[in-house]
Design a protein around this nucleic acid. Structure first.
Lengths: 142, 142
DNA sequence: TATTGTTATACTCTATAACTATA
DNA sequence: TATAGTTATAGAGTATAACAATA
């Protein structure tokens, strides 16, 4: 079936593009004192105090206990803060410190500056965005 | 600058799509006895005996010693074989065993079957492929 | 009873440094 | 001298199971 080959090529491209971003980040992460996994976590934390540890684990697709130790390390480095939830005393909300925000922004900025889509002109990038958005819509409808 | 927002959205989509593939794989990897990292390695090994350990490390973007221990584990599970290079006795060529090939094919097949591009019709997927190919061309020309 | 987060434990993953054996 | 691969080590990342606190 030819469609399978097409889908496989698309996935291979997807991985290759992701690899290129990862390679670019690897040139800058050591001097920021971050590992790959910590960068992943940082990327998924917003500025506000609104993400629970549970939610972070879901976003990282890891066990809750893994999120706990990840937050332990980020907290030790002064990048994240645990804040008690105002109404549910079981919950801890995770908040980036100002240092954490700054670091996260530098990481994202570098990724954008060295974007693997830089070879595409603006029109092509807009068409790509449109296709990505369409693919994203079908997230939960199989 | 509005272009930065566009590039950032593209990268976010890229990560989200990669996350969806990862999530689908996670539903099947435990029963195959594979971890994420081992799956990554398996994916990058071809059927022929042509990849050196060094080359694998480059593809995985990891240190050579990391590749060594990864191959150790894969070998222990009977998925990979180390073969001496015919002319350069320093080099070890890595070859998937038949079991390794089968496992790798099952992983890839599952990824393709649950492709995050399933929501796009054939024409859209062809346009996406064309854009991916164009982006891939500019890999080494900055 | 169910959920949130943690701890204890045992692996896997990873890079650094030092080493060997070839080239 | 330079390169391919390994070992030893130490720390990061990960899931499982058992647990405490709260809902």
């Amino acid at each position: 079936m030819e469609t399978e080959d097409l889908d496989r090529e698309l996935i291979n491209h997807l991985f290759a593009l992701r690899d290129r971003v990862k390679a670019e980040l690897k040139t800058v992460l050591p001097e920021l004192g971050l590992t790959d996994a910590q960068t992943d976590a940082l990327w998924r934390l917003s500025d506000g105090p609104e993400i629970t540890a549970r939610r972070l684990a879901e976003r990282l697709q890891c066990d809750a206990s893994t999120a706990t130790s990840m937050v332990d390390r980020l907290e030790k480095h002064g990048l994240v803060r645990r804040i008690p939830h105002p109404s549910d005393r079981r919950v801890k909300l995770l908040q980036l410190t100002s240092q954490g925000c700054e670091l996260r922004d530098r990481v994202i900025r570098h990724a954008v500056e060295t974007s693997p889509f830089g070879g595409l002109d603006r029109d092509a990038r807009l068409r790509l965005r449109s296709l990505f958005r369409e693919a994203a819509q079908h997230e939960e409808t199989p």
